[in-house]
Simulated assay, not measured.
Amino acid sequence: MDYALKESSTKFETILGTALKVPGVRVDREQFLLQTLGSKIKDGNIVNLAIETDPVTAGIPIDKLDKIANSLIKKRTTNTSMLSFAAGMPGGVTMAATIPADTLQFFGTAIKLAQELVYLYGYGEIGNANQLDEDIRRELTLYLGVMLGVEKSAAALRVLSTNISKQVVKRTSRRALSKTTLYPIVKKIGAIVGVKVTKASFAKNVSKAVPIVGGIVSGGTSYLSMKHMGHRLSETLSESIYYTDADYEKDFKEVCNEVVDVEFN
């Protein structure tokens, strides 16, 4: 990995670590499912089963989950657009010395939405008692990589995620990738996300030169970005429910090839 990517990786890790400390960014899986499914599903037994196992195992149709996902994306998209407008005005509050407030709130919203979507589609709790902080960050990096359209990140998510959906076909004959193999590709995904953040932040900072117009441009950019990001992840998660061994073999080869590229670049 060259110097520029290493610098971007470090910047992304700083943003991710800081965003995770912002109140309200972390999502409690049980409370989220109880509140979200409880308002959409009339049968309380199904809601309780979804919490104990996962929404798909509980028998909630995929098209129903997709509709709920769309409403969540719309809600978070609206929130980040409104917050970004305020942050896009000159003199916006900076929560960290090296991280603009709008960048921090945007990624905080993205992380929150990512957790909500993975819980909805059957993934387990992020940050359980058995997970180290670094493992949590790596998992979130995979989700954000998918949301930002980083190449191979969707394949990496399906193959490497420690919280892969219970609906994904699992065979004892499947080949495993060790954590030491996992780290390089996640590191590269984080670096690429860092590059995207740097470019986005630069564009937003230029737009702030004109007060009201700057706020509108910043809010509009956040709206479109969060909308596309949410749909990329929800579509990947929805499709993974029908994941087959053939799909796994294809993704496994992609990830292995990517690991080789990372090691030799």
Rank of each mutant, 00 (worst) to 15 (best):
E7N: 10
S8P: 03
T14H: 13
L20E: 05
R29G: 08
L33D: 11
A50Q: 06
E52A: 14
T53R: 12
D54S: 14
I68L: 10
A69Q: 04
K75S: 13
N79W: 01
G92I: 00
M95F: 13
A101H: 10
Q105F: 15
F107Q: 04
I111Y: 01
A114M: 08
Q115T: 00
V118D: 08
Y121K: 07
G122A: 06
I126P: 03
G127P: 02
N128P: 02
L132N: 12
L132C: 01
E134Q: 13
I136T: 14
I136A: 05
I136C: 07
L142E: 12
G145D: 10
L148Y: 06
G149V: 02
G149A: 08
S153T: 08
A155T: 01
T162M: 10
V169F: 06
R171S: 13
T172Y: 11
A176W: 11
P184S: 01
G190H: 07
G194T: 10
T198S: 14
F202S: 11
V210P: 00
H228S: 14
H231V: 14
S234F: 00
T236C: 12
S240F: 10
Y243M: 01
A246W: 04
E249F: 03
K253I: 14
E254W: 06
V255P: 03
C256W: 06
D261F: 09
